[in-house]
Amino acid sequence: MAKFATALCLLVAVSGIRGSNETISAVSAITLELTNYNSTANQTIVTMEIYMVNMATIAENALKKLNSSMTAAIETSKSQWEELVNGTTTDMSSCENVLWDEYSEVAAEILANATTCIDSLTAEANSSLNLVRTDFETCSTSLLTLQKDASDCSSYNETAAHTCLESIGETTDDSACTDIATNLKIFTQMYQNFSDLVSGCVNSNAFMSFNATLKTDLDTAVECALKLLGMAS
């Protein structure tokens, strides 16, 4: 569509048809263009909506994996500690530097931050989708206007109808359709990069620090307990 007004000018210039037949030819060409365009637009939007569903699934799975990973790390560490100290009469209170409840709170905060990060990415993708949808609607409206204007030319006599069509081709603003390709490319790139961006949200420095600190605290507590039990090397 971006150059359809120019194509209309050429159609008028080379058709050799004058008067009402010329107008009918122009309107038919525009109608065909509009039909093909709307079909392409609808298919494209459907595909983009499928991509949005895919992105939602990627985000949901990433957050589930993050949550289960931190929960499992806490539960595993807690089980290792309890397996070591349960049944012993030795006072281990001086070794209990791993505060499980605090780690659960930290894990909840990390998950909340990751969710906020991913929600921002999803909102950006949705905004990009809406922009392309608006572009399509604007371009379709432009084609409908072009169709109506060409049809209106049939009310004139032969010479005036020809001049009317030429005028439409020369004055129609094609800019309504020129942004679609650019904005569609932006959305496509966003979709292609979404998994990596989500990975950045969940594999944050806070998450890495969480795992490292939990391991260090557990190792320290275990070493302390083994010394009290006289089992340290």
Rank of each mutant, 00 (worst) to 15 (best):
I168Q: 02
C95I: 15
S127N: 15
T134K: 15
L99P: 02
D196G: 14
A160C: 13
D174F: 04
D173G: 06
A160D: 12
S120W: 03
L111H: 03
T182G: 02
A114V: 00
E105I: 04
T182Q: 07
C177L: 02
T145H: 14
E170F: 14
Y156C: 04
A176K: 02
T171Y: 12
D173A: 05
C164G: 06
R133L: 09
C95F: 08
S154M: 10
D173P: 01
D179Y: 09
A176I: 02
E109F: 07
T116C: 12
Q192G: 08
C95E: 02
A160L: 13
T141I: 15
C164Q: 04
S155Q: 08
I186C: 03
I118F: 01
T159Q: 15
N97Y: 11
T145G: 12
L146H: 03
L144S: 13
C117D: 05
T188R: 10
V98Y: 06
T182R: 11
F187K: 01
Y191R: 06
D149L: 13
E109L: 12
L131Y: 04
S151H: 01
Y103L: 00
D152N: 11
Q192I: 02
N183C: 11
N97H: 09
V98N: 04
D174P: 05
D174H: 05
K148F: 13
F187D: 00
E166S: 09
L146I: 12
L184I: 05
S127R: 10
S195P: 03
L197W: 05
L146C: 10
E105H: 07
E158S: 10
E105M: 04
E96N: 15
I180V: 07
A160G: 07
A108C: 04
E137T: 10
S128G: 11
D174E: 10
L143G: 02
T145L: 13
F136G: 00
D149N: 14
N193E: 08
E96A: 12
S151R: 05
F194R: 03
D179M: 13
L111G: 00
S151L: 06
N113V: 04
F187S: 00
F187E: 00
L129E: 01
N126W: 03
D149V: 07
T182S: 06
N193V: 07
C153M: 03
E158K: 11
K185N: 08
V132E: 00
A161R: 02
A108M: 07
D101V: 14
S155I: 12
V132M: 04
S127Y: 06
A181K: 13
M190R: 03
L111A: 06
S151A: 15
E102Q: 14
